[in-house]
Amino acid sequence: MKRKITYTFIYIILTIAAFISVFPFYWMIVGSTNKSVDVNKGKLTFGTHFLTNFKNLVNNYNLGEVLWNSIQVSFFVVVFSLIVSSMAGYGFEMYKSKGRNYVYGAVLLTMMIPFAALMVPVFKLMSFFNLIDSLWGVILPMIPSVFLIFFFRQNFQQYPKEIIMAARVDGASELRIFFSIVMPSMKATYAAGAIYAFLTSWNAYLQPLVIIQTQKNRTMSLFIANLASGYQPDFGLVMTAVVIATLPTLILFFALQKHFVQGILGSVKQ
């Protein structure tokens, strides 16, 4: 009897928590189908305004251009960041030496540094390379990811060393072993890493805020921030933009949930 009460109580708590967690997503989607006034009043039911909002974004705010900028940034950050970080993780894990251990320690320590602290020098560096107001100015500084190096190193720990040994005996070069044997067999790890890199780059705000100066190079985060920051923003429009920005991440999450979670689990396993 007592047990039954305990479990009823647990289900109630979890249901409330789940409701609170999901509700803002529901409200955001509802908001994208409503007029500004209704969103502001907190209307909870679907409206008929979605197409109007959407067309407004495409025609008057050049949504296509903004999305394309964000897609480019994320694509290049994911690709380069995975190659660079996984190579580093592999290098640190498979070839142990004292010198590299010190380097690894120094690299890990930089996780503590807020990007805001690097913002001014990165801005100056980018103006030196003539990359202010260019998407590459946003992409390049986002490629090094200490977290991903750490993440890949953790995952390479579980890679069977015998396979590498066997490949060496067969005369395969070290780079070849990595690119054509190790890399293809770690798909789950790369998927999780890709999701992490995508999330960071797709959602980045401060980085593009510092580098991007003109409308035509805006990314989704900058666009939403601008749209929502006016004195009297069109709330329906803002919600539609938010939904469009969130949709790719949600789809990715539900399609690759296992990898997604694995990415997080792998990073803390001792």
Partner: peptide, 25 residues
């Protein structure tokens, strides 16, 4: 020595976008 080859790319990026900014700042 291959260890250094594998980590070199990341060292360049981290050096340029984290260590250098840190010292410069």
């Amino acid at each position: 020595k291959w260890g250094w080859v594998f980590i070199s790319l990341s060292i360049i990026f981290i050096g340029l976008f984290i260590f250098y900014p840190l010292i410069y700042s």
